[in-house]
Design a protein around this nucleic acid. Sequence first.
RNA 1: GGGAGCAUAGCUCAGCUGGUUCAGAGCACCUGCCUUACAAGCAGGGGGUCCUUGGUUCGAAUCCAUGUGCUCCCACCA
Length: 879
Amino acid sequence: MEITTKYNPVEVEDRLYAYWMENGFFNSDPDEREPYTIVIPPPNVTGVLHMGHMLNNTIQDVLVRRARMLGKNACWVPGTDHASIATEAKVVAKLREQGISKDQLTRNEFLKHAWEWKEKHGGIILEQLKKLGASCDWRRTRFTMDEKLSEAVIDTFIYLYNKNLIYRGVRMVNWDPVSKTAVSDEEVIHKDVNSKLYYLSYPIVGENKSLTIATTRPETIMADVAICINPNDERYADMKGKKVYIPLINKEIPVIFDEYVTMDFGTGCLKVTPAHDVNDYALGIKYNLPVIDIIDNDGRLNQKAQILVGEDRFAARKKIVRMLDDAGLLIKTEDYKSNIGFSERTDAVIEPKLSMQWFLKMDEISKPALDYVLSGDVKLIPDKFKNTYKHWMENVRDWCISRQLWWGQRIPAWYLPDGNFVVAKTVDEAFNLAQKKYNNIKIDELRQDEDVVDTWFSSWLWPVSVFDPSVCGHPEIAGNADLNYYYPTNDLVTAPEILFFWVARMIIAGHEFRGKAPFSNVYLTGIVRDKLGRKMSKSLGNSPDPLKLIEQYGADGVRVGMLLCSSAGNDILYDDSQVEQGRNFCNKIWNAFRLVKSWNVEQIPQPDYSAKAIEWFNSKFNKTLKEIYDNFDKYRISEALMNAYKLFWDDFCAYYLEIIKPSYGAPVDKSTHTATLAFFENLLKILHPFMPFITEEIWLILNDDKKENKTVMLSQQPKPYGFDEKIVDTFEQVKDIIINIRALRQSKNISPKEYLDLFVKGDIDLSFTSVLMKLANVSKIEKTDNSIENASSFIVGTSEYYVPVGNKIDLDEELEKLKKEVEYTKGFLASVNKKLSNEKFVNSAPENVVVSERKKQSDAESRIKILEENIARLQSNNI
RNA sequence: GGGAGCAUAGCUCAGCUGGUUCAGAGCACCUGCCUUACAAGCAGGGGGUCCUUGGUUCGAAUCCAUGUGCUCCCACCA
């Protein structure tokens, strides 16, 4: 096969993914090995891959592939979320394009369209994940509205209802008067709007005075049920027990007192309108006030308003202001900026509207979920999110689980004509229940609740339901083999913004139904932003198309690019240059492979430098491998990748290969070649979780002759074993000498091809001389007790090195260099001396710190001695 | 309004329980190289008051406090 100069990922990636799939490498079934499990945060079924998915799923794939190579039974369960709001909105929009409005359809007709849409567009995102190389067990793909998973949701609802944890209650919803539906908070866009604050006069009953209140919504005064004043407000101390008239309709309402009212806003008097304001509703409950709803579903005033009936709310506002003004009850008008919600879909101003909703009591049920995180049984990475989590869980509010939508699991509540209801799985069961509780019920009188449950009410079951949905709502069931083997899972990789919506609730559900938290670690990724720090969004057009990136740079390149700059919990600022770096790294690996592959191997003696290089790299490799393991343990994935990157590029390519590389056309000895291949394969294994395609491709080519071993790479990760720290350190000094000589060549304009001599005064470890000679192109290395004339010198460690450069020597320059060096070393010595002469330091610093300071002291002293001798010598020569 | 976090090289970030003159990495930048693995490369190099001001300590990028500037989450005042 032809091996191209440049690595070509496009050709390789599809072929290898197909190969992996054919061989079932990603499949997992319970066995005697230790399981490693990740459930995917299910993307929206109709979604398309964006950069956030790329980051999130790359990290999961790295973790899964690594676990698999560590010999664990790794299982990554993929799937999609029905995402009721988002999907329903998309289907509605699609139908609208076809000229069909949702109101024209029955529930079943609409759902038929929705399922068609899902069949057509669902799963696109999963296909896209394959391009990234995601090693999911695709046989296990789940969808939150699969029959069994939906049943699990219904059973869970019934279970919690029977435990008295679910109740019906009134709640303010965001009402869109144009589409005549409630919309979720996520679908409300808040904008700052210039509006007016109207000061209105409410006459006091039985007196000739009045109270002035400030409001932005004068059209709702007919729904007022009280005026509220802060009890600490001395201006109104005499208002206790009094009543006022609502202007225009002259209805008497009481004055009440509550500290909720801010004294310095407006006049300090608040009109209480429970039907049209959330806070007022709460006040209404507290003081047992009536609720008067004067606005209909289409945004028009109704009969209860008494005046302006049938007028649109905004028209009514204008008219009532004029009426109040005419009546002399409008005191003044102020400009005011208020934050108003608009419907994302229709741009209508959202009307807060009271409606009956279903709630889950959270106070008791959420306690264990708090404990798991506080005790560390569930670790958040990074742990800074622990505080946020704690704060939220300690102030948790009941969860509104009903949504006024059709796409989702329908609430299993059945209403009787009189408004009573029963909760049951089927209409037959509901009928049985209803008959027991209430008499003379006919089955066709039962009407099921129109609403569906919140999407999170299905996805909170995900880590359980993907394995065995039947235990949801049935904690007494033992569960199937899959569940007992894979649950609890290991790591969850998700975004911090859904820590509460999803993560906390999964812990609650997992505890409720299995008595165990669903995972041990939660790795929280950041948000992918553009390089200016802006969130990626369609409207800004600043989000690159991930598939195009993959085509351009290769999946491995994109993966590396994303990983390099993504520490846990921090946002990543995406820039093409990162992905370029990833692509370049692929090319580097490819070319190293080409070099190794090109060698002729012969039975010739092994050069000393090769033996030394092998010895050194073996230690360096294992040292780095240990660092990589440590970084993985701490979930420092980008650091682990950087370790591997530098090991490959800087150590393996720039040093190891350069040392052992034979001159053009010359053969390589057998044992060096064998060792090199072994190193190369181990490097491929380390890199495989990050860059699965290129590593697999090279591995397959290298092992072309052992077909039966083709799965070896995917199942093994090298383990770090002992390494010789001293060899690594000594080699660092050798590198230092090489760098000095190379720098000297550059400054003196000496060609890399020209041989130089090297003299050493002081101790030198001679074990790497052959390496030194090759890389620095030195023809001889000699020890000397005397200084060398016409030589440039430098110090490494405590030894001095001389390179004779003949008439290229510049004594002034050399002197200057030495003087700088001695000055620096003296400063260094002074700081060390200062510490050591400080009794408090010597007494209170730990032993090893003092010892290392003493060593520094003596090293610096001997350096200064050498330098000063040299300076003296050069000065006397220079005269 | 409540809560949390961040501030280190031009950029993105490391710096774990204070202790090497501790100020690091990658990218970018500058200089010299088309040296038969690789110009998507090779070799060498420059670059920072660790946000301000105090405090604790023998010793602070690291711990504490204040100020400033950003970011996020929750609740949103008529």
